[in-house]
Amino acid sequence: MTDANTPAIACQDLWQVFGPGAEKALTDALARSGNDADAASKILRETGYVPAVQDANFDVKEGELFVIMGLSGSGKSTLIRCISQLLDGTGGQIRIHGEDIMTASKQRLIELRRKKLGMVFQHFGLFPHMTVLDNVAYPLRVQGVSRKERLKKAAEVIELVGLEGREDRYPRELSGGQRQRVGIARSLVADCEVWFLDEPFSALDPLIRRQLQDEFLEIQAKLKTTIVFITHDINEALKLADRIAIMRDGKIVQIGTPTDIVLNPVDDYVREFSKDVAKGQHARVASVMHQGTEGVGPDDPGLRTDMTLDAALAHCMELYEPVPVRDKEGNLVGMVNPADLAAALQVEEA
């Protein structure tokens, strides 16, 4: 079923509407609006329904780290719960490795969750009556793995998240950071292929958050699973993501790489987010480079296409003439006007 081109996750026309008889209401609304998502949402709202996710369309590639970002109430948590089938989507399709999971049987879903899916929760969702070891081993327990084997596997994952020595503690005896490590370990114990993380670091204080982000990236480099990661923090999204989807009021307003989001926001809402971002740290020289080298100045500060704007600017503080840019191999590929560099870093006026 899976080949190299099948996306790990594919969402098509996905809707999640809350309210009694939501499915029929959605069909009616779409029919009345001629399949126009915005108009249909408006109709739904006016009739007392809550369209929490509206017509979401995106693919997540195998091994990709896909971040969904938005403010609270934007529908991002609902969206991840649709994809993980904690909520039955109201309309549309979700395929995981090509398999439509919206129509999957209960039995098949249980199987999928046992073998393929893992999830980490904002408030950890740890079982209060189990020790760290039992918590982590629980996904294996429901599969009927023998106690000895599952504890061995759990101990391995506990070591991966750096909690060795705390196996016999109860969740209430751990700090927030340690608790989330348990949550991460539990979601990894069954070797998932698709990993859902619902604001995993939002409940932690900033220092612990950064530390866990770094460790998370290390784990990801080792495991290379496909990841859907929810956050409300633009800096976290930019730091971790291969691609970012930005949600607002149930709608995905932009999907793009971190650089896209920062430099080419589609509307004021997205621009508002990137306002807080130190752009120079995320945008690359390539994004402001001109093709061709006509009129390039005499100085060569050694700019590369993959340099951040901050680094590039530091190299040409004293220069006013356009300077040449080279790619990784050192070939001359274009030029940049230092004034453009500075201009790109300006905070845009709303």
Binding site: L86, R113, G118, F121, H129, P139, R141, V142, Q143, F196
Partner: peptide, 29 residues
């Protein structure tokens, strides 16, 4: 019982009976 605890039991791949007797009832003890 916290909704995330219930969801964690679902995502672990527990059947409804496993969720109830291994997670929800002990959590509500």
């Amino acid at each position: 019982v916290e909704s995330e605890v219930k969801e964690a039991a679902v995502m672990a791949g527990g059947t409804r009976l496993q969720q109830l007797f291994q997670v929800e009832i002990p959590s509500a003890s």
